[in-house]
C-alpha cells in the first residue's frame, strides 16, 4: 500500500473517529431499563440525547405504545414529556388514555399532547420540541409508511436531540424499518402472559422486544415485563400475579416435601 493511500485512510479514520466521539461524549448518559441482558447489550442502558425507533405491526400498536411509554418514563426522569401524534393514528389505534398511563405507574401530569394534522407539521413540531432542554423526552407517533420521514429528517432530529440532551422516541406503527440515524431500533410484539391456568387473570404488561439495530453493541430479542410499581422493565416473571414472599419463620414447603419423600 502506498504511503499516500495510507495517510488518506488515516485521515479518513481520524475524521470518522472525531464524528463518532462527538456522539459518544453525549452518549455516556445512559438510563438502565432494568432488564439485565438488554442493558448489557445497550452498554448500560438506553442512551439519552439520541433518537430511538420503535416499530410494530398495525395491530401490535398498543404493545409498542406501552413499550415507548416505559422507555419515556425511564429516560424523562420527572421532566415533562411531549407526545406528538397524527390525527389519523388516533382513529386507527385509539387515543392515549391518561388513566391507562397512570395505571402503568407513569405520571399523566407531565404529558403534553400535540395533535398534528399531518406528518410535516408533526416532524416540525418534534424538531422544535427536541431543541427545548426543559423536556425529558419527545415521542413522535406516526402511523403507516411516510415518505417525509427520510434520512434528512431523521438526521435533523438526531442533531437537535444531541445539542439539547432530550431523548427522542419514534413510535412507528404499521411501518417497515428504513435507514435512519437512530441510536437503536426495536421491533415490538405483545408477549403472552406466563403460562398458567386458562381463564385466569393476566399479569403485568409483557413485551416481545427485538433489538434490530444498536449502534454501539449487539442486537438481541428478549421478553420484557413492565413493573408498574417500580416503573422499570424486568425479566419475565413465572407467575402472572405477584407471589407473596415465603414466610421467614416457616420452612419452605418444597423442602418439607423432599424430606417426607
Amino acid at each position: 500500500m502506498s504511503g499516500a493511500r495510507t495517510s488518506a485512510l488515516a485521515t479518513l479514520r481520524g475524521q470518522i473517529e472525531r464524528i463518532e466521539t462527538a456522539e459518544v461524549v453525549h452518549h455516556r448518559d445512559r438510563v438502565a431499563l432494568g432488564h439485565s441482558e438488554a442493558d448489557g447489550a445497550l452498554k448500560g442502558g438506553l442512551a439519552r440525547a439520541a433518537i430511538h425507533e420503535v416499530f410494530c405491526e398495525g395491530r401490535q400498536g398498543t404493545a409498542a405504545t406501552g413499550f415507548v411509554m416505559g422507555l419515556a418514563g425511564r429516560v424523562s426522569a420527572r421532566r415533562p414529556l411531549l407526545w406528538v401524534r397524527q390525527d389519523f393514528s388516533e382513529i386507527e389505534t385509539g387515543a392515549l388514555s391518561m388513566s391507562g398511563l397512570a395505571e402503568l405507574g407513569l405520571d399523566p401530569r407531565r404529558v403534553v399532547m400535540v395533535r398534528a394534522a399531518d406528518v410535516e407539521s408533526a416532524l416540525r413540531t418534534s424538531a422544535d420540541a427536541l431543541a427545548c432542554d426543559a423536556l425529558g423526552a419527545v415521542v413522535l407517533e406516526l402511523w403507516g409508511e411516510t415518505r417525509q420521514f427520510d434520512l434528512v429528517a431523521s438526521r435533523k432530529l438526531t442533531l437537535a436531540a444531541q445539542s439539547s440532551g432530550v431523548t427522542g422516541l419514534m413510535l412507528r406503527m404499521a411501518a417497515q424499518p428504513l435507514p435512519s440515524t437512530a441510536e437503536t431500533r426495536w421491533m415490538l410484539r405483545a408477549a403472552h402472559s406466563p403460562p398458567g391456568e386458562a381463564w385466569t387473570a393476566w399479569g403485568a404488561p409483557r413485551f416481545d422486544a427485538e433489538l434490530l439495530r444498536n449502534r454501539h453493541g449487539p442486537c438481541g430479542r428478549w421478553i420484557m415485563e413492565w413493573k408498574c410499581d417500580e416503573c422499570q422493565f424486568s425479566e419475565p416473571s413465572t407467575y402472572p400475579q405477584p407471589v407473596a414472599a415465603a414466610p421467614a419463620h416457616r420452612p419452605d414447603p418444597a423442602v418439607l416435601q423432599r424430606r417426607a419423600g
Binding site: 398498543t62 387515543a95 388513566s99 395505571e103 387473570a201
Partner: peptide, 19 residues
C-alpha cells in the same frame, strides 16, 4: 390530583381508549 393506582395489581385501565 390523579387517583392513585392499586399497588401490585396489573393495569386496570387500557393504555389506548377508543373515542
Amino acid at each position: 390530583e390523579w387517583p392513585a393506582r392499586v399497588e401490585s395489581e396489573p393495569p386496570l385501565r387500557p393504555l389506548r381508549l377508543f373515542d
